[in-house]
Design a protein around this nucleic acid. Sequence first.
DNA 1: CTGAAAGCGCTAACAC
DNA 2: GTGTTAGCGCTTTCAG
Lengths: 338, 338
Amino acid sequence: MAATIRDIKRMTGLSLATVSKYLNGGNVLPENKAAIEHAIEVLHYEVNEVARGLATNRTKTIGVLIQRLDNLFSSTIISKIEDILRGHGYGTIICDCKGEEKLEEESIRFLLSKRVDGIITLPTATSSGYLERALVRDIPVVLIDRVFEDKEWDSIQVDNEEGGKMAVQKLIENGHTKIAIVCGDEQYYTAKKRLKGYFDALEEADLPVYSKYIKRGPLETSHGFQSVVELMEMEDPPTAVFLSNYEITLGAMLAINERDIQVPEDLSVVGFDNMLLAQVVKPKLWMVVQPMEEIAREAAELMLRKLDGGTEEGQITKVVLHTSLTEGASIKKIGKLT
Amino acid sequence: MAATIRDIKRMTGLSLATVSKYLNGGNVLPENKAAIEHAIEVLHYEVNEVARGLATNRTKTIGVLIQRLDNLFSSTIISKIEDILRGHGYGTIICDCKGEEKLEEESIRFLLSKRVDGIITLPTATSSGYLERALVRDIPVVLIDRVFEDKEWDSIQVDNEEGGKMAVQKLIENGHTKIAIVCGDEQYYTAKKRLKGYFDALEEADLPVYSKYIKRGPLETSHGFQSVVELMEMEDPPTAVFLSNYEITLGAMLAINERDIQVPEDLSVVGFDNMLLAQVVKPKLWMVVQPMEEIAREAAELMLRKLDGGTEEGQITKVVLHTSLTEGASIKKIGKLT
DNA sequence: CTGAAAGCGCTAACAC
DNA sequence: GTGTTAGCGCTTTCAG
């Protein structure tokens, strides 16, 4: 049995209150301080955060609810969030809902039963219903990457529209006019925005939109794979494609390898979010990247602020960060000048 | 304020004990059961796991202490562990120690203060000192991937020796005799084993060992990168290389891309653990892969068994799983027959 | 099967 | 600055 505050009381002859005060950084006489520290040392005492949590009604743990842990976007962000939170004494309970809305809702209940002090979530669902319970309990919630249209939430996101536009503009600059996009379907907020960027770029350049070049579907590897195959089998295939998400980019590259599609000779490519892939594949890929560490930092810090009451009741903070375009060798210059 | 068991008591007129019994699956009269369920519904009651944890001295959370979250080996394993544990009502608190021993030790204290019921760890340190505190507290610990030589622990690992041997044998089968290995240094248990496999394969084939072809160093991308560069700049470069870990494989591929090394014409390659890379790179890489899901499952289940007391006191369980070799196109056949 | 009561380890008034 | 005391929400004897 681990030592308790009572053991310290006994050993030092002080009262529980004094010991507790010391533990919480209050002022105690130097001699008492020394006595307590000695006792802690000898007894290997360590605060029982569970008991403390019950007494204070704050567990110093944050729930992180994520779509999937097994992609680099998520794991990089979580890793950083965990880092910052732990630096402030917070533990991180992770729930991977594997992209299933049902699990997502269950996870919220789970986290609430664990009495987390706050929830950071990278949502799977398209509406915020599953977060109601947290709201009712008055637990701070911070959204990452996606937002909901049915309600305002504190959130950290990037300008996806801008990201999509940048990618397509780069392709246009290089003389491409037949530009495809592989994109998530309607339900995804981010997909919608990235597609909007695609349209905007084309429109601003007075280029026509070919609906046959727009491939929407689930945010999965298979969709990226399948779309590229289909695009390249067309009679009039596109000369370039914007792969608008992590999994899609991955799937597309698998297809490109398997079908022996030459990049950029047969097809110019701009991917999204998959820096590892960008570097490891030959030729290097042009890639739209999100500032993952910054997203994580903003999310963690916003959460900490909300927990400290450093934020007005009812005030919504929406942080929008910017993507950047990293250079590769996956775009062929055709016709025109730069 | 969330509803408590007391509110249910008031609402149903039953006693705390009865409600508690119901909550824990005990037998209650059907009418009382109905009343309680109704109250739970109306009040949105949910068990406070913190209070329960204090009363039972079990928090139903497991600490997972990992070297780094941001590689696919770790995140796949954690994702699966989390899945299984949650299925049994356990939460998972993750600590990413970023490969730093100091953080690793701190993390243990952190997890202990959170009163986790058990710890699953993929160690960074080379000796088990940092786990002493957990041992003293009599908290079950399960090791993944690495073991310590100074003491026996419950562990799940793969046969790294066999894995290394398989890789090199495959190279030998294809006629290679000048085979390099890029490998972690002495401190790493797994590196030692994989290197042993390398030696064994060479020896069994009566092939000489060239120490210049053995590149040891930190388990980092840079080491993989640097080693490949150095190997290929030799006067008498190897014709094949075994990249014996995830990061090394990644770094090596970066070098191969950057230096325009032709695989397998200039260099045949077998990698380790990086299936994503194996598929996405051209040509496809031969790869030694660990059964990550199985590792995770064994670890989670062993932990659950230990928690249920389904395991003898003091009994050590060591699970050894097997790697497999997945086919690629990164080995050139030279000379000889198969 | 149900209820009363003690207690898990800590915090937080409130007196002194 | 220190001590006393009453909980936090739940489980768990032990009677009934």
